[in-house]
Structure formats: C-alpha cells, structure tokens
Nucleic acid binder design. Sequence first.
DNA 1: GCGGGCATGCGGCGGACGGCGTATTTCGCG
DNA 2: CGCGAAATACGCCGTCCGCCGCATGCCCGC
Lengths: 205, 205
Amino acid sequence: MKKILLIEDEPQMRKNLALILKREGFAVVVGADGSEGILLAKRELPDLILCDVMMPEVDGYGVLGALRAEHATETIPFIFLTAKGDKADIRSGMNLGADDYLTKPVSVDDLLAAITARLARSSQHRRELRPIFESPAPLESLGLTPREAEVLFWVAQGKTNAEIGTILGAAAATVKKHLEHIFEKLGVENRAGASLCALEELARG
Amino acid sequence: MKKILLIEDEPQMRKNLALILKREGFAVVVGADGSEGILLAKRELPDLILCDVMMPEVDGYGVLGALRAEHATETIPFIFLTAKGDKADIRSGMNLGADDYLTKPVSVDDLLAAITARLARSSQHRRELRPIFESPAPLESLGLTPREAEVLFWVAQGKTNAEIGTILGAAAATVKKHLEHIFEKLGVENRAGASLCALEELARG
DNA sequence: GCGGGCATGCGGCGGACGGCGTATTTCGCG
DNA sequence: CGCGAAATACGCCGTCCGCCGCATGCCCGC
C-alpha cells in the first residue's frame, strides 16, 4: 500500500484531503505545518508528498528545499497544493524539483490523477535534469516572445505540453500553439530540436 | 513543378532514375559526376538533389560539402544514394547535412516517399542542429552499449526514430527498443531528457 | 555448454505530439 | 482611437513516441 504524506495547515482542508486519500486506499500521514512535514517526511519516507505552498513559518518551498537537500528524501515525488493566482511562484517551485502542482480548490479526479501519474512515473526513479537555466529570459534573444521563451524554457527541461500548461496556467492547446511558433522561428521540427537550440543559445550566451 | 537534380555517374542507373522521376511529374536535371553536379546545382537551384556517393573525382561528400558551403545552395534538401554496406560512411554524410539516404537498389516507392517527405519538410527551411558530437563513443561512459550510444548520438542531433533506423541500417522498431534501454539507464522519460543527459556528458567529458 | 548480456526484429496499444484552421482577448504603439 | 502583434483557446487529424511482450541469434565468460 502506498504511503502519502499530506502537509497542510488549514484544518478543514487537511481533513477533507486525508479522507479522500484514505478512501482510495492510501496510507495517509498528515503534518500541520512545514517543520512537522519535514520531520514526518524523513521519518516516514512516504511514497509521495502533497504539500501546501502557503504555510506560516516554513512554507512549501522550504519543505521542498529541505527534502531535496537530503539523500533519503530527494527523490520522493512532491506535489504542491496552491491557491489560484500563485502562478509566478510556481515556476521557482518547479525549478526546485517539484513534480506537479494542483490549484485549490482541487477536484478529486485531478488529485487522484496527479497522484497516480506521479506514483507510476516514480516507480522507476528518474534523474534530475535540472537546473540548466535560471530564467527563460536569455531565450528571447533567439527571436522569441517572452511567453514563447517561457515555453521553450520548460520544454528544455523535458516537460510535456500538459505539464507546461499547468505550470504557466494556460491550456495545453496554447502551449502547442506557442510551440508551433517556436519551431517556425528556430527552424526545427520537434521539441527535441528546440531543446538543443535552447542549449546552444545557453552555451553561447 | 518541382525540379530535381540527379547526380549519378553510372549511365544505366542515371537513365532509370531520371525516367522514374519524370514519370512522376518532376523536372529532372542530370549530372554525370560530382563536378558537373555542383555546377548544375548552383545554376539550376533545384528543389531537391539526389546524389550518388561513390563517384570518381568528386564524390557525394564532396558535392554535399561544396553545396553546404554556399548560401544559395545550403538549404537544398540533399539525399544520398549509396550501395548497401556503406553504413559507416553514412554517418559522416549525415553530419555534413544530408537529409536522408537511400540504399541501392532503390525501390521506386522508397525513392518517391523519401523525395516527397523531404520536399514537404523543406518547404519551411530548417536549421542545422550543429554537429555537437564527433563520435558516439563518449556516450558509452554513461553506461550505454556501443549501439545504444550510437542511437543516443543521433537522438541528440534531433533525429527521429525512423531516420535513425535508416542511418544505422536497422529497423525503426529496433531503435525504439534501444531507446527503451537508454531511458532506463539514464533515468529519463523521453528523448528530450536523453538528449540533455548526452549534452551534459559531453560538457563534462 | 550454458547462462547472460547484447543486438535485432515484430506487433499492438494508448497517449503525446505537430500541423492547420479559426477565433477571441489583451495590450502597446503610433 | 485603431491597428497589429501577442497570447489564449478549441478542435481535427495523422503521425510519432514510449511501453510492453515476445522471439531469435550471437558471443563471451564461467
């Protein structure tokens, strides 16, 4: 049975989510704030962590950073829970090595889909491709608009269109559209080629 | 109507191929050796070039190199015609910027498929993804077998599975199988991630 | 000689991707 | 104010990708 650590400071939300997860047959461990979450993560070594971003004292980024810094916990799939509108913050979160994020209010389906997707992927431990870029800005020198640069930025981290849509708070269709323009501008045919262009640019700039 | 330049020193082969192409409604220009081919390419600026590899004096590589060195001709799709068994040579040819190659004897279907595919793609000029690597060998230090290294080598140049199959003289299915192993070994999920690992290795080694 | 790693091949499946068309909203610049 | 570029979004469609299982042949080392 898979063990999930839920870190959420708001009592009602915590209760609801825990209930949902238990009903799905997960073993659920709950932490009420960042510090407790970190302790629990290290002790329980859960299969996956759901963590609120906005918490007093140690926030979600703090938790993620702490866990990614230690060997025992660095590969545990980590999903952020955030309120709508934190989009800007999300990017740094993803850069720290978060695997996904969900915007509250969360639909049960989305929650379970994200969890099962992550559990499936993490069964084979993945390598961290990170942090090649600090910011998408340099990519604009390839003739891209700021938004296109952001898309390419994430493409070059190996993200899928759907993931990028989630990160940027746009529809996957929009990401595809941006990608069309990017391919056109870079003269490549697919995301792999675009990634390579991005890296070239990085190496040059 | 699309204009195709055919460079082939063997008279019978030249005649046959020209006939096939004409019957398909292409305007065909023929050159009997490398030097003539280069001249014709510059003068006629064809939409696509079919070029034999083995020719006296200036061979296929010479032609390709000459055309890629000049602005007017550098983006013309270039397809090699080679005899079975030249596989090793092909790789350097592809690195020079060839778009495809066909092994003689060529089936009419393969020939036309390759041509139409190339014409379709070249309608929007593509960027040459730099020859980043000289040889696949360094990639073996990632724990890959020689063959897997070769596959990754081409993946990192933005090639598609089918293209890689053609280059290595293996079935596309085999390339996919190698890729499965590569993903496993590198701990990534897709070709983009694998490319990045390859470049990382390159930068380090 | 027998196991095990390697290379090769095939086929199927579902999902992701890429191309294309279309349309609306937003925003900056003249 | 109005134009145009950028960003957003949706749908269709064919292809490529990634995953899985299976099978064969080779060669090397124990």
